[in-house]
Design a protein around this nucleic acid. Structure first.
Lengths: 151, 151
DNA sequence: CTTTGTGCAAAGCGTTTGCAGAGTG
DNA sequence: CACTCTGCAAACGCTTTGCACAAAG
């Protein structure tokens, strides 16, 4: 989806929600669209200011929340004390594999796990709304390191 | 496993770790053993003091960490900003289903999900060490409420 | 008697919020 | 103009920590 289209969609949704289109909100949307990685709000704000753009941390948090409500951004906990955000435009749901040594994050989708989750919920009389799955391990590169270290 | 046995194991492990057996640590172990639910450190400390036992919050956090290292206690994030602890003595690994309305927590174990997780890791060259899976939904009781509310 | 533990209160850390002035529609 | 936003700094909620005194081995 081209940036122009997202921007229009963003503006339209803001209007629907009774919110205003501000310089800061557009800047943040633009920066989010550049990101393909998993980022945290604080670092995001820092990067903006390094780029010479001044937007306060508070506004970053507030705007990422709006983008989350609009499903433009997804929030995950990847085993750290802070939240990670990721741009979800043109992207399907997925879960994460996190390396405990180098913090590398790999995305994956395993439909059979999703199905089984549905089944578990059904069996317990729950209507599933969401789930959170992270696998923690040691990635290939870091396992190699281990091998070397043991020589 | 009888309490006496756990206590002995606790004392032995403390010794191995070069730590001392203190009144507070024993009190906390005892209280943990009484718990079958998912609790947070703060509430745990509060309950102790209601029970007339004085142990500081700091010591509760410090001791729960030790118990976690000893695998006597397990730490999970159930979608709140604080950690939940649970007594793992005589209990097998399991994941959690959380009701978004009433916060009810149901434990489940789906071996096929565990297997698929292994497979996903393998496929990505990871050695799995741990995982975190929470399903969020609306439980049977709360779905009923919805139905009533819509009448 | 040496070493570790405890309580307290303060600090940390990510995140949220109240407020006064700035900007949008 | 009326109303929402922003930036700031202070507040927050959970957790950790420095320190002086207490207790364990």
């Amino acid at each position: 989806m081209p940036y122009e289209e997202i921007l229009d969609r963003f503006k339209a949704q803001l209007k629907i929600m009774g919110l205003k289109v501000t310089r800061e909100r557009v800047i943040i949307l633009e920066e989010v669209m550049k990101r393909k990685d998993h980022f945290d709000a604080d670092q995001f704000a820092a990067d903006l200011s390094v780029g010479g753009v001044k937007v306060s941390r508070a506004t970053v948090y507030r705007t990422l929340d709006i983008l989350h409500d609009m499903k433009i951004v997804h929030k995950t906990t990847l085993g750290h004390k802070h939240q990670h955000y990721e741009n979800m435009v043109d992207r399907a749901h997925h879960d994460h594999l996190v390396c405990l040594k180098c913090d590398k994050v790999v995305e994956f989708l395993e439909p059979r796990i999703e199905e089984l989750q549905e089944k578990v919920c059904l069996d317990h009389g729950f209507v599933i709304k969401d789930h959170s799955l992270q696998l923690f391990g040691i990635c290939g590169d870091c396992t190699d390191d281990d091998a070397e270290a043991n020589n």
